[in-house]
Amino acid sequence: MKQLAEKHPAIIRWTHWINFPILFGMIYSGLMIYWAYPEFRIGWGNFTLFKLFPDWFNKSLGLEHHLAMGMAWHFFLAWIFAINGIAYVIYSIVSGEWRYLVPTWRNFGEAIQVALHDLHLIKKAPPQGRFNAAQRVTYTAIILMGLGSLLTGVAIYKPTEQSWLTTLLGGYRMARLEHFLLTMGFCAFFVVHIVQVIIAGWNNFRSMVTGYEITTQEEPHAERANV
């Protein structure tokens, strides 16, 4: 028998969906800022395997010569990003929603099993509640990464006013690298997240919009009836 089950509270859904375009804007304006001094690369010694980022990347996204525009948007959207994220965390704590999300110690081991299951390498997935072990670990990491982006961002934005923070994070140049790596982490998460959402299907996606999902409860009598 089908049932309508409440899954995601409204504040969780709103903060999630508000974060989506805001984080997109943060990354886009961040890339405009980064363009002005693109110091990072994948390589070792004098050998560069991949420049971060190649010219074709900057050109095709229209990132060139927009430092001032990037900064203006970045320091506007950052407020919304921070307030939205803090609202999510406060709500999660007050409502107790965090219990569905924050992983237990056992979840870390189970997360590997979930990943192997998703890759069709093992048959049986570990038991799960609202989120499976891999989701718990990943989503919690994403929240912590958001906090990390905020802190490394402040360390770069105000390295004098908040010099204690900049120093704590290893200095101005190190904070820049950390901020950059966290951004790359968000991009990697985004790709995996989209693939997983597509695989999980419509009922799951719809629950993040409406808050409800349809669950099926086994009815032993009817199943047996065969009429």
Partner: peptide
């Protein structure tokens, strides 16, 4: 058999109701 048929009908009715309610909520949320 009659009782089970009745139960099956009841489930089908419930399922249709659930789908309708979900569709209504979906329309509103989207």
């Amino acid at each position: 058999i009659a009782r089970l048929e009745e139960e099956r009908r009841r489930i089908a009715e419930n399922n249709a109701l659930v789908e309708r309610e979900m569709a209504r909520r979906s329309r509103r949320s989207f």
